[in-house]
Write a protein that binds this DNA or RNA. Structure first.
Lengths: 345, 345
DNA sequence: CGATTTTCTGTGAACGTTCCCAGAGACAGC
DNA sequence: GCTGTCTCTGGGAACGTTCACAGAAAATCG
C-alpha cells in the first residue's frame, strides 16, 4: 500500500485516470449517485447532479468502457470486416458506399461502427480474436470469399452477423445482396438488343459470388451463341484487368463487337484498350459495365451499366445485425438493381 | 443463487459464455493455472496444460477481452480516425494506402487497427467517447481539418496519437507528412520550364493543410507572374472539381497553356474538360497533378504528377504512436516526394 | 396524523480477468 | 538432514463499473 500513494514511479508514465470513486469523493456523494448522474437516470436531486457535474469537471473524469462493458455484457459496437486485396481497397468505390450506408444506420441506433481490415493471415487471427473477445456485439462482413475462416469463427461463437453479398460455402448467416446473375443477364440481353453479333465478357473475381454470378448471367443471356473462347478471366475487378482482358479478346476475336465487363473499373480499362486499338465505342464495339460507380460517368463515352445500390447494401446488412440483436429473425434481403443506359452501347 | 442454476430464463437469449472458472472446474484445477495456460506462461506442468486445453475445448471457452482490458489497463488496439466527406471516401485512393500502411506496422507489433469513420456530428461525439473510454491505446488521425474537435478531445485526455498530415490550429501532436508546399513549388517550376506563359491552378480543400500548402507552393513558383485570376478554388479533391474548374479557367483565360491541379483526380477532370473543349494535352495545354495515385496512369495522356508515398505516411504515423506507447518522444517525420514526369506536360 | 407512495442516496455484490503472494513438493549441495 | 533453489498450484485482491436492495427523507393521501 505504501508504494501506491507515492505515485511518482516511472513504471506507469501516464497519470492514473480518475475513477467514479474519485468523483464521488470530490462531490461528497456516493458511487451510486455519480453513476446515476453519468447515465442520466432519474431519481437524483438537482443539488446532487450539479455537485457531481462539478466534481467530474474538476477531476477530469471519463468513464472506463472496459469496466462498463464487463458488467453490462455488451459493447454497443459493431465490427465491419473488410477482406480485400490491396488493389481493390483503392479502386472499388463500392466499399466506401457500403461503409457509409452501414455507419448511418448504426449511428442512428447509437452503435459505433468499427472497421477491421484483413490483409494477412496474422490479421485474420487477430480479428477473429477481437470479435470473439466480446469487443463487438455484432458484425457485418463484406466481400467474403467462399469458406472464409472469419465467417466460420463468427458462426461458431454465435455472434449476430450479416454478409454483404452472398458467398456460398459460408455458414448460414443472413445477407443483403443483389441478384448479380439476373442483372448480368439483363444488361447482356440489352447489349445484344443493339444488334451485336460477337459479344465477349471480361470476367473477374470468380472466387466471389458476385464474379461467379455475373458470369452465369452472361452465359444465360447468350444462350446458344455463348462461346467460351470469348470469355477471359482475371482475379480482380480492376482497371488493369479490363485493359489486359480487352487486348486479349481483340487478339482472339478481332471481329468482336460487344463486351460485358464484370465491373465499371474493368469496363474503363477495356474502353481505353479499345480506343488505343483504334476501335470506336460504341460504333465499332459496344461496352457495358456493372456497378454504376463514379467510373461510369467519368468514361468517355459515358458507360452503360447496372446501377447497384451499394449504400443500401451496407445499411440493409446493418439492419439485419440490429434485428438479430433485438431477437428478430433477420431474413436475407435482395435489393433491386436497375440498368443505366448511357452512351457506351 | 437459486435462479442462476436453472438457466432457462428468456431474458438472456444468448447462452452464457464459459468463463475461466468454468474451465477450471472442468479441468479440476484452479483459475490461476488456467490463466497461465491461456497466456502461455511458464511454470505449468504438461499434465495441467493438457487438462486445461481439453477443458477449454470442451466448454468452448474464449477469453473476455473487456475483463482483461480492465485489469491490464490496455486494449492493444489503435484507432484510426477517418474524417472525410462522402465523396472523398470513394475517390481518394490515398486513404486505402494509408490504412494498409498503418495496419501493416501495427499488425507486426500485435496491435489491432480499428477504423472509425466520422460522417456527422453525432459520429464525432460517439467516436470521441470511444477513444476516451480506453477502448484503444492510441490513435492515428487522417485528414483532420483545422481545429478538429476530435483532435482536441484526444489531446485533452493525453492519448498517444499522431496525425497524417499537419493541420495547423490543431493541438501539438506528432505527425507524418510531406512538404506539400515545396513539392507544389517544384512541379509548378517544372511545368513553367516547358515554356508555358499562362499557367493557372485548380486549388482544392483549402481548409486542409495539404490544400493550403499546395496553393502557397504554386504561388511561390509563379513569383511575379502570379495572377490571382488564374486560380479557381473548390472544396474537395474531386474529378468534378477538376472538370468544372477547368471550364471556368478556360472562360477566364482562353489563352491558358498550363494548369496545376491540386490532385490527380482534379487533374483527370481537368483533362476531360480540356479535351471536350478541343484543346490538346500537352501540345496546347500542359497539365500536372498531385499524388501519383492510380488516376495518373489511367489518364490519356498519362499524368505528370508528384509521387507521394501514402502507404509510408500511414506506417510512419503508426510508428509514431507506437513510439509514444513505449515512452519515446515521437518526433514528426517529413517524407520525401518525387516528381513523376510523364506525358501530360 | 398515521399510512402509503415517491424521491433520493448509499452500499454490497457481481462482471471475468490478471497479478501477487504463500506454500507445497522435488531436487541439489554440503 | 538442513538449507536453498526451482517448479508448480491455489486463492485473495484488485481493475472500474452497474445493478439490486435497503433504508431515509420527503411528499401525498385518506
Amino acid at each position: 500500500m505504501l508504494g501506491y500513494s507515492t505515485n511518482m514511479s516511472l513504471t506507469r508514465t501516464r497519470a492514473r485516470r480518475a475513477t467514479i470513486n474519485d468523483v464521488a469523493d470530490a462531490a461528497g456523494l456516493s458511487r451510486g449517485t455519480v453513476s446515476r448522474v453519468v447515465n442520466g437516470e432519474k431519481y437524483v436531486s438537482d443539488e446532487a447532479r450539479h455537485a457531481v457535474e462539478d466534481a467530474i469537471a474538476r477531476v477530469g473524469y471519463v468513464r472506463n468502457s472496459a469496466a462498463r462493458n464487463l458488467v453490462k455484457q455488451e459493447s454497443r459496437a459493431i465490427g465491419l470486416i473488410i477482406h480485400e486485396p490491396h488493389s481493390l481497397l483503392f479502386e472499388d468505390p463500392n466499399i466506401g458506399s457500403i461503409l457509409l450506408g452501414a455507419n448511418e444506420v448504426l449511428s442512428k441506433a447509437d452503435y459505433q461502427l468499427v472497421s477491421l481490415i484483413i490483409d494477412s493471415d496474422r490479421d485474420s487471427r487477430r480479428v477473429a480474436d477481437y470479435l470473439r473477445g466480446g469487443l463487438v456485439d455484432g458484425a457485418v462482413i463484406i466481400s467474403a470469399r467462399a469458406s472464409d475462416p472469419i465467417a466460420a469463427a463468427i458462426a461458431e461463437i454465435g455472434l449476430p452477423a450479416a454478409f454483404v453479398g452472398h458467398p456460398d460455402g459460408t455458414p448460414e448467416l443472413p445477407y443483403a445482396a443483389i441478384d448479380n446473375e439476373e442483372a448480368a443477364r439483363a444488361i447482356t440481353s440489352r447489349l445484344l438488343g443493339t444488334g451485336r453479333k460477337r459479344v465477349g465478357m471480361i470476367a473477374s473475381a470468380l472466387d466471389r459470388d458476385s464474379g461467379k454470378d455475373r458470369l452465369s448471367g452472361f452465359r444465360a443471356a447468350m444462350g446458344g451463341q455463348f462461346d467460351p473462347g470469348l470469355v477471359v478471366e482475371y482475379p480482380l475487378y480492376t482497371y488493369a484487368a479490363g485493359f489486359d482482358g480487352m487486348q486479349e479478346l481483340l487478339r482472339r476475336a478481332p471481329d468482336i463487337d460487344g463486351v460485358f465487363a464484370a465491373s465499371d473499373a474493368v469496363a474503363a480499362g477495356a474502353m481505353t484498350a479499345l480506343q488505343e486499338a483504334g476501335r470506336r465505342v460504341p460504333e465499332d464495339v459496344g461496352v457495358v459495365g456493372f456497378d454504376d460507380s463514379s467510373w461510369a460517368l467519368r468514361c468517355r463515352p459515358q458507360l452503360s451499366t447496372v446501377r447497384q445500390p451499394a449504400d443500401l447494401l451496407g445499411s440493409a446488412a446493418a439492419e439485419l445485425v440490429l434485428a438479430q440483436l433485438n431477437g428478430l429473425p433477420g431474413t436475407p434481403r435482395v435489393l433491386e438493381t436497375e440498368i443505366q443506359w448511357r452512351e457506351s452501347a
